[in-house]
């Protein structure tokens, strides 16, 4: 049992295990803090900056990102002060400048009372939350994609902007993306992610295309089971 610490969030006294973040503690207490880059399956990253909160600790007040700030004893957290809301409004405006259409962003903008961004809309789509990269690295374990560049040229990229050799076409990055930036479709036994084609495996019994071949090869490699074990779909296995 981890050591418990006591903190207050919006005046409510909450106790949480040491090592949890403000965002997790707030979630457990049913206090809503908007966020886009946090995912409980992944290591905290702190890139979307929507979860900014005001903390007071030992008489000092400052603004921190709730998803990467660990709780400490006697911490006082305020989720919705004027100062925090101003910061958050600016952050959502900056995010809207990258993607002003997606409902997830629109919803948060509405909650904050932001109608339009004051910045030129670039329609980049991706908000660089890094969930796809982290999922590929930490959950799937193949690290097929990463970031490239830095600053304004930072983007999600396959190595050398070319066909990603390590990708198993599992589609986890597509699934986890909060703004549906990564397109995926399946047609005639081929799964296409962005512009990369991956052949699908046809079920030996029912003939249905059920999974990318590379993913099954990866399963076979990680489980040590022969490849033909995976050549039937789940229904026929």
């Amino acid at each position: 049992m981890a050591e418990m610490v006591t903190l207050t969030i919006d005046g409510r006294t909450i106790s949480a295990p040491a090592g949890t973040t403000i965002l997790e503690a707030a979630k457990d207490a049913n206090i809503y803090i908007p966020n886009l880059c946090n995912n409980e399956e992944l290591t905290p990253y702190g890139s979307c900056r929507l979860c900014m909160v005001e903390i007071t600790h030992k008489g000092r007040t400052r603004i921190v990102a709730a998803c990467i700030y660990e709780v400490v004893d006697g911490l006082e957290v305020n989720v919705n002060t004027e100062r925090v809301l101003n910061v958050r409004k600016l952050v959502i405006e900056l995010l809207l400048a990258r993607n002003n259409e997606h409902p997830a962003l629109r919803k948060i903008a509405d909650e904050l009372g932001v109608k339009e961004t004051r910045f030129p809309v670039e329609k980049k789509g991706c908000i660089l939350c890094g969930q796809c990269v982290r999922t590929c690295r930490e959950v799937v374990g193949v690290s097929a994609i990463g970031f490239s560049g830095r600053g304004i040229t930072r983007r999600i990229a396959a190595p050398f902007m070319d066909f990603p050799p390590d990708c198993i076409a599992c589609g986890s990055c597509v699934y986890v993306c909060p703004v549906n930036f990564i397109p995926m479709r399946e047609e005639n036994g081929v799964r296409t992610i962005i512009r990369f084609d991956f052949p699908m495996q046809q079920c030996k019994k029912c003939g249905k295309y059920f999974a990318p071949k590379k993913q099954l090869e990866y399963f076979s490699k990680t489980t040590g089971l022969p490849l033909d074990h995976f050549e039937n779909c789940i229904d026929c296995r």
């Binding site: 990269v133 690290s143 190595p159 050799p165 390590d166």
Partner: peptide, 18 residues
């Protein structure tokens, strides 16, 4: 080290050229 990681590092620093 995954190739994606190397690409990240190589594009991040201006001292590296691809």
């Amino acid at each position: 080290v995954p190739i994606s990681r190397l690409f990240e590092v190589a594009t991040f620093y201006k001292a590296f050229s691809l």
